[in-house]
């Protein structure tokens, strides 16, 4: 609806060109909706003034000429002066009025943003910890044994506010899901909070929005907004320990992953892999991407990533382990079972 309104303005066409899973021109979240409405209002008001100024300029250009160049007062000068004065007051009134409108709109939007959860509903609690270059996601509950840990993917129930505590383990990062809300920085040693109120079911893409090093561009986060029932199903699935490997190949992969280099950094719940410094792999095959949006989560992606992580994402902290072909097949086969 709104988008159609803006079609004549080239800038807005450009912006709406970004529509999709990573777009500011979306109101999938309460917060992004507020920001977008304010943006549209600003756009309309400033566009009107822009058009008016240009129109006056053109009019003035065309009405130039006349016989006023000798400095003598011409006839009808008094009438013109009076109408000019009227125009001046009208113009000033319009400027003051619209500026006040924008100021008020900004104020109310800001208040709106500050109270994203006005009904004080129980919120989903998430700790989001940024690392170079991936996202560590921890859901916490009153009963800590129900806590969930995953990486590079956030699931949110639609219509339920989510309180996200933002932390960083190394440098300053920024959390931005344009479809849902504005940006918020993740600063080492501090905790910043942001409350998201997703309204529309869908898949969105977040991106680190503060330059954080070589692989800043490969630091994406999938945000999946789903119905509360689907979300509960997802929660229950995440709480399950990793499934036991069924095939001989997967068993070989399990043996390698849980006893060798992988287990030093990665965690797979229910196994001996208890590392905490790299993404949790308990349900890695259920996620959409590998390495924070670098590769798609499928067999080809797994092979590419495990065999040569530095080729896919140069400079990241996953070392080249140097697996032989048999080990590579086995490890990939096992990871594929971790739904």
């Amino acid at each position: 609806m709104r988008r159609r309104l803006l079609l004549p303005i080239p800038l807005f066409v450009l912006v709406s060109g970004c529509a999709g899973i990573q777009s500011v021109s979306d109101d999938a979240g309460r917060e992004s909706g507020l920001i977008w409405s304010l943006f549209v209002l600003f756009g309309i008001v400033t566009a009107i003034f822009y058009v008016a100024v240009i129109a006056f300029l053109i009019a003035a250009y065309w009405r130039r000429g006349g016989s006023n160049q000798d400095g003598l007062p011409d006839e009808g000068g008094v009438t013109r002066e009076r109408s000019l004065r009227t125009a001046f007051f009208l113009w000033t009134g319009a400027v003051i009025g619209s500026l006040s409108l924008l100021a008020l709109a900004s104020y109310f939007t800001d208040r709106g943003l500050a109270s994203v959860n006005p009904e004080n509903k129980p919120m989903v609690g998430i700790d989001l910890v940024a690392n170079q270059w991936w996202w560590d996601v921890r859901y916490h509950y009153d009963d800590p044994s129900q806590n969930i840990r995953t990486a590079n993917e956030i699931h949110l129930p639609a219509g339920v506010p989510a309180m996200i505590s933002l932390k960083s383990n190394d440098v300053i990062h920024s959390f931005w899901v344009p479809n849902l809300a504005g940006k918020q920085d993740l600063i080492p040693g501090r905790i910043n909070d942001i409350v998201l109120m997703p309204r529309r079911i869908g898949h969105y893409r977040a991106q680190c929005a503060e330059y954080c090093g070589l692989q800043h561009a490969h630091m994406a986060l999938d945000v999946i907004v789903e119905s509360p029932a689907d979300f509960q199903r997802w929660e229950a699935a995440q709480r399950q320990p990793a499934p036991a490997p069924a095939t001989p190949l997967a068993q070989a992969g399990y043996a390698y992953v849980t006893s060798r280099e992988c287990s030093t950094c990665h965690n797979i719940a229910g196994t001996n892999a208890n590392g905490t410094v790299a993404p949790d792999l308990t349900h890695v095959a259920g996620r959409r991407t590998i390495a924070a949006g670098t590769l798609p989560m499928n067999r080809a992606g797994l092979y590419a990533w495990i065999a040569d992580p530095q080729g896919a994402k140069p400079g990241n902290n996953m070392p080249t382990v140097g697996l032989n072909a048999d080990e590579l097949h086995a490890v990939a086969a096992y990871l594929e079972t971790l739904k």
């Binding site: 060798r260 280099e261 287990s263 030093t264 070392p319 080249t320 382990v321």
Partner: peptide, 8 residues
């Protein structure tokens, strides 16, 4: 050995 790569 086996927990770290040689490069590490």
């Amino acid at each position: 050995k086996g927990r770290l790569t040689e490069q590490q």
